[in-house]
Design a protein around this nucleic acid. Structure first.
Lengths: 146, 146
DNA sequence: CGTTTTATTGATACTATGTATCATTTATAC
DNA sequence: GTATAAATGATACATAGTATCAATAAAACG
């Protein structure tokens, strides 16, 4: 995950700006998501959270994941084995690539997707307000190490 | 759903060709999926199946949905309220559009998506073997009736 | 055809994932 | 520092999906 372009401070600021209190659980979870190399499920995030904060409750983590998703800070990964994993959202619009070998997520430029959506809008007559694009395959590293 | 382009006979033939037995449950479920206007979850398909075949078991429906998905006869819809709904797969490659008002699915030409994937492969260095694209918005009908 | 073989089915129990409730705790405002 | 209200954690609950296994039904075979 390109954590260099995501700042935990900004996430706390976003929560604050939305009228939520800034708590230690939040900070713990934000750190977990921002620093993970892989998409995480709520359950995995809970496990991770209890390592540094053993009393963390399960429902709390599920609530926080929902909150972070609603604020657009994390995005759901629509994969093969379900759709319950999340990755941090980058400031810029981007498409997700998931490597089926190592499981890591990579972010690709979404300009081509924007063009595609505009094109589809014109040819279909539908008004497109949102999209989910997920790409799968073997990342550059895994191809070379195969 | 454009059922005119999907033939239940072909589905049964596909199951047969894969070495599976052709049963009444299968025929019931295939009819349900082919004729539904909306994406269906396994649970919804079970409800529908019991209307014409009351003793149909839940696990059977889940197994059959999995089988149909593995054979590529139905596709998972990756939507907002989860990813547990399915639509029939059209013979040609197509992208899915889901109307957020009426819930109906429409199939769009996927050539632009193929181009996008080729382009992303070249610029990223990843080998892309599969994709999931879901578009959301208001369909032509719902825009006019708003 | 009737019989044998074997995949499929249905009932049940179970696991996993996610949600509601509510007393307790903790962050913020005063 | 104290009051207040949101967030938390424990529990119970709800929903979605899976494993098991005896009973059933489709196909193969004589």
């Amino acid at each position: 995950m390109p954590s260099k372009t995501i700042n935990p401070e900004d996430w706390l600021a976003a929560l604050d700006a939305s009228g939520f209190r800034v708590t230690t659980v939040q900070q713990t979870l934000i750190d977990i998501f921002v620093h993970s190399e892989y998409p995480l499920s709520a359950e995995q995030a809970w496990d991770a959270a209890r390592q540094s904060r053993p009393k963390t409750g399960r429902a709390t983590v599920y609530r926080m994941v929902e909150k972070l998703e609603n604020l657009g800070l994390i995005r759901r990964v629509h994969g093969y084995q379900g759709c319950s994993h999340f990755v941090p959202t980058l400031p810029e619009l981007m498409m997700l690539f998931i490597c089926l070998d190592c499981g890591r997520a990579d972010y690709l430029d979404s300009q081509p997707l924007d063009d595609l959506i505009q094109h589809s809008e014109h040819t279909s007559g539908h008004h497109i307000t949102d999209s989910r694009l997920q790409l799968f395959g073997a990342c550059a590293d895994c191809q070379h190490n195969a």
